[in-house]
Write a protein that binds this DNA or RNA. Sequence first.
RNA 1: GGCCCCAUCGUCUAAUGGUUAGGACGGCACGCUUUCAAUGUGUAAAUCCGGGUUCGAUUCCCGGUGGGGUCACCA
Length: 435
Amino acid sequence: MEVRTRFAPSPTGFLHLGGARSAIFNYLFTKKNSGKFILRIEDTDIERSKKECEEDIIKSLKWLGIEWDEFYRQSERKEIYKSYLNMLLENGNAYISKEGDGTQDKKDVIRFRNPGKKIKFQDLIRGEVEMETEDLGNFVIAKDELSPLYHFAAVVDDAEMKITHVIRGEDHIPNTPRQILIQEALGFERPHYAHLPLILGSDRSKLSKRHGAKSTFTYAEEGYLPEAFFNFLALLGWHPADDKEILSREELINIFELKRVQKGGAVCDFEKLNWFNREYIKKLSARELSERVKVFMPAGFDQNRYDIEKVVNLARERMNKLSDIVTEMDFIFKLPAYDKELLKWRGKEDSNKVREVLEYASGILNAVPPEEFSKNNIEKLVMPYADEKGRGEVLWPLRVSLSGKMSSPGPFDIIEVLRKEETLRRIREAIEKIQ
RNA sequence: GGCCCCAUCGUCUAAUGGUUAGGACGGCACGCUUUCAAUGUGUAAAUCCGGGUUCGAUUCCCGGUGGGGUCACCA
């Protein structure tokens, strides 16, 4: 039988990490089994459902590279629910409460006649789960024929869409028995269930509650690579048999199995996310990285002024995320204002000595033709002098004159990017500053 | 509170009825080094507690404790 799964978010909020992870596990499981993945927007609550949330969910899934084979919106399927509702009403498994058994409902609502039996189901991750359903009472399944509620619509859709595996968050475990009850009343087949552990915040509470408003897409906007983010989330609550952690989507699909999903909730460690992102940034070619970094460049950065691939290569080891290009490389595009004291190595060098060093270095550089301003050439020419005078005494002021910063890439790296004219201009500026 | 789920380093996790309980992130130390970063080497750090079962439990069972989830005319 063909495997069919669904990711069924409600567009009442953005796609948070937990939702994204559920989507990823559904996706990996489906691809592993050559099945079909269905995206179903559960917007039966018209009051709370928002178009922008649906858009956010779709945008986020696309960013993660998760594609669906079929797409549904529950608000467009009311006639289908209505017919099943009528079926239940006719065979007496549901009733309109005002006519019913003395409930205090103000309006007519449709209630499910709960047989109140014990429900047992097999969870692919947790094994057998057993629950009493009696205290659920005759719960409401629809406000009226055209306004089904979550449990009813979900059960009808899972059956109509021939879903074979329901893979969702652990917070749905208490919902499962009542959904099975509806299923049985309708004569539907029971799908396999797999309840994923929750993703927790550092205080171990449900992450979606804490940072409820934060969308997965904000990670895109901060400059996380989707492949890194996907990899990170895939390893939250699941782990392959071996120790390899950097895994491509294809590798993940190949080795994914529900049996290895963790039972306990997982705290989301953003330091580890950064590590994944750095690892993926490292793997990018200078060209790819330049492309990806472009959107993060502020208008003030004249990207045509310097060889952007060289700039990016200096930044890549220092970036957690793409947007860090701004804070790491701002000095290339515009020399920041800095205190002349910064030019003094360890803050205690004599001004005259600093000036002397910079003038000497300037002299060496001035003699080099512009086309020979490569890192290696310059390094070969300046290092003998630095070794003679003391590396710190020479390289520190030279680097600061070029970067204006306490910490930055080395002077020869910067020189190659800035090229002759700008290099000499900045050294000149430093010499004047130190007078 | 009722019901349900869960429990290995700070975090993500591996493993087995017998291991020096492994890896990764983060931390710390050292090396490299003009600074930062990167990198190399090393290092600290865990089986929640109590009972069983067993020759032997971190692993199996029970209880406790702890954490989490859920109890809508939301999903």
